[in-house]
Computed example of a mutant assay.
Amino acid sequence: MRRIEIEPRPDWRAKVEAEGLIWHTSAGRPYWNESAYYSFTGAQIEQIEDATVELYRLFLAAGQAILDDQTLLDRFCIPPIFHQAVRDAWDAEPPALNFGRFDLGYDGGGAPKLFEFNCDTPTSLLEAAVIQWSWKEERFAHLDQFTSLHDKLVGKWTDIRALLPPAVHFAHVADDAAEDAVTTSYLRDTAEAAGIATIPILVDNIGWNDDGRCFVDDAEQPIDAVFKLYPWEWLVNEAFAPQLLESLVGMVWIEPIWKMIWSNKAILAILWQLFPGHPNLLETSFDIPAGDAVAKPMLAREGANVSIRRAGAVVASTTGAYGDEGYVYQALYHLPEAAPGCFPVIGSWIVDGEPAGIGIREDGLITGNTARFVPHVIEG
């Protein structure tokens, strides 16, 4: 795994914008960073792919163990009135993409290590599925790249199309950076490529019709199915939580409510309890350990409220509005410094249990919302 510097395409901004990546620059520097790329061997990609398959197997086992043990489920800060709904959705397996991004530490040689699983509101999707492939085709057409993400997403929408109503709403917040808007718009494109009609809506514009006992859009039309890029832990704590619980009986929510378990970092501690010493896991606990560790809120986004502890002292930290629900403490993994100040995290995507490609984000010691996306190729 080598990081190689390269001259960016002179018109790269126009090209990525034409493919939908309007959020390509952050804090005055490129978020989409094609001034470098990572080169992997086929064996290294196979190692990442194998780890992704194995981690998915562990998450399946952990999910069942958590739902079978009320004491474990109670650690996830899910309102008790939703516990049965989570169990019901897990057992029923309602229509879903069942996709997500395993964030991994990897140095090109040792076993990939799980940092967390972003499977409820994963972003950097368009970049991994489309933008880096187009870059590769233009710059290195003779080389390969690990991404089948676009085809697998379209294929999964095709698989579940008959189980969905005539139209699916796609909801997200009106984020200033447009990161959520870009991700949701891209997923609409994949659904439409599978022959599904889509309707965009902002989360704040979703209403409730008391007479029809259903959620409605801004045209007062019933919402029968919705893909939402909005965390379940926020939804279940909103003022309309009782109506939300009622809607779970007949309305299709993508992704389903059981994703609250997998996306909660409490599962990292449960995984270690169930599979201690597993080569793809880092030791994680609900208690502050004696050794070097990373403190992570059980519920957080974009690396907020994370701190790195070495020899009992905090050496790096981020701010944010998370942490009230508690923390987990994960053994510190020393990321390779591929370039001065650049520590790559591998985002390994999965769709319905199958590895679907990788995306690489670079940042400092803590990967946050200022991380930059760097493309990759496969050589050898």
Rank of each mutant, 00 (worst) to 15 (best):
D107E: 13
L281D: 05
L143P: 01
F215E: 00
G326F: 07
H169Q: 11
D74A: 15
L271V: 01
A191R: 11
T367A: 07
Q132M: 15
T367P: 09
T158I: 10
D159P: 07
T184I: 05
N209F: 09
V182D: 02
A96M: 15
F115P: 00
N118I: 03
T41V: 06
A193R: 15
G326P: 00
K156L: 08
R188S: 11
L55K: 06
L335H: 09
A89P: 04
T318H: 01
W133R: 15
A167D: 12
V226M: 10
I78V: 13
F76A: 08
D176Q: 03
G207R: 15
E127F: 04
D352Y: 10
D176H: 02
I261W: 01
L126N: 04
E302P: 00
A313H: 11
F240A: 05
I4G: 01
L114R: 01
E354W: 03
W23R: 08
R310H: 14
F373S: 12
G28L: 08
E283K: 13
I350C: 10
E34D: 12
A225H: 06
N209R: 06
E192C: 14
E93C: 03
Q243W: 01
P122I: 05
T190L: 08
T198V: 06
L125P: 00
I206R: 09
Y329W: 10
A18K: 10
Q243G: 01
P200W: 06
T318N: 02
T198C: 13
P30G: 07
I366F: 02
P340D: 13
G20A: 12
G212P: 01
P200H: 09
N264Y: 03
P242G: 03
I66W: 01
W208C: 04
A241M: 12
A239R: 11
E5T: 15
A295N: 06
V182F: 06
Q44V: 09
L248A: 03
S35E: 12
Y333C: 05
S348P: 10
N280R: 08
D363H: 10
H278F: 15
A36S: 14
Q64P: 02
L126D: 02
